[in-house]
């Protein structure tokens, strides 16, 4: 196998492609984690609270891994989170939608749709030849296995009775179109493929995702609101997120999460163990 290249050694076009790829990976993780934390303290039981909190921390940790890779391309946490314009975030609209109080079917189904996608994405970047993309995959994946099992187990349980299944179905009708935005190609899509940054094209990954998701959800008695043969672009919501166009929920969320930073007039962030002591 050819030795891995470092991000810093890529040429300009490849770097732009890598940036584009990394922003989407990082932003999806960052925003889904932010939403998951809304369930802390108010999950159905103490045990389910601990588990979802943990998943939130895992995803935020993964965002940090990809932010660190972007650090190799010259970005600081300040640029990436605290002073970035909300319109410059590249995450999918799936992860930015708010939860309705008590709608536990939503984070569970959303988590499932997202975790299957993340698994396939990790496969794809693991097939690249760039060290900062390949190296973190194994550790991230070890945590993702739990996420997927957690989501599947809950879905089976919730779909065990009619009332629960109806709640999951309603979440599916609402969320699946937003999940499709995970696979909308950006302007750098062909450069990402030609630079060898992912082992599998976005389109092929989307098809795998839909196969997996549809067969599992249908096995639970749910209906997936599109067929594998359908043109996915026809089912997309008005905003897809990854081009910078988001639902109105995102600027509000961004405003809330940057509030302290702005109020205190901070211009930088401290990292743990990052003080040279």
């Amino acid at each position: 196998m050819a030795p891995l290249r470092a991000l810093a050694d890529l040429d300009d076009e490849e770097r732009a492609a890598a940036e584009s790829l990394l922003f989407r990976l990082a932003d999806d993780e960052f925003v889904i984690a932010e939403r998951y934390t809304e369930w802390q303290v108010v999950a159905p039981t103490l045990e389910s609270d601990l588990a979802l909190s943990n998943i939130a921390q895992d995803e935020l940790g993964h965002a940090r891994v990809w932010f660190d890779a972007l650090g190799e391309l010259g970005y600081s946490e300040r640029d990436l989170v605290w002073e970035r314009d909300p319109g410059a975030f590249r995450h999918s609209t799936l992860v930015e939608l708010p939860f309705a109080e008590g709608d536990w079917a939503d984070p569970i189904l959303r988590g499932y749709l997202y975790d299957v996608a993340e698994d396939l994405r990790l496969d794809a970047v693991a097939g690249s030849d760039v060290r900062e993309l390949v190296d973190p995959v194994e550790k991230i994946r070890s945590e993702e296995e739990y996420h997927l099992e957690h989501a599947q187990n809950w879905l089976e349980r919730l779909c065990d009775d009619d009332a629960g299944r109806e709640r999951v179905q309603s979440a599916a009708d609402r969320l699946v179109p937003h999940a499709l935005t995970l696979w909308v190609p950006g302007p750098a899509a062909s450069a990402i493929d030609s630079s060898g940054l992912r082992g599998e094209s976005l389109d092929a990954t989307r098809r795998q995702w839909l196969d997996t998701v549809a067969s599992f959800l249908e096995s639970l008695g749910l209906t997936v609101p599109l067929d594998p043969g359908d043109d996915p672009t026809e089912s997309l919501p008005d905003s897809v997120g990854s081009d910078g166009n988001h639902t109105d929920h995102w600027p509000r969320l961004h405003d809330e999460l940057t509030e302290t930073y702005r109020e205190l007039g901070r211009s930088d962030v401290r990292r743990l163990r990052g003080e040279g002591t």
Partner: peptide
């Protein structure tokens, strides 16, 4: 949500 750094949020 209101933490002013990623590490603090974690």
């Amino acid at each position: 949500r209101q933490s002013p750094s990623v590490d603090r949020k974690l």
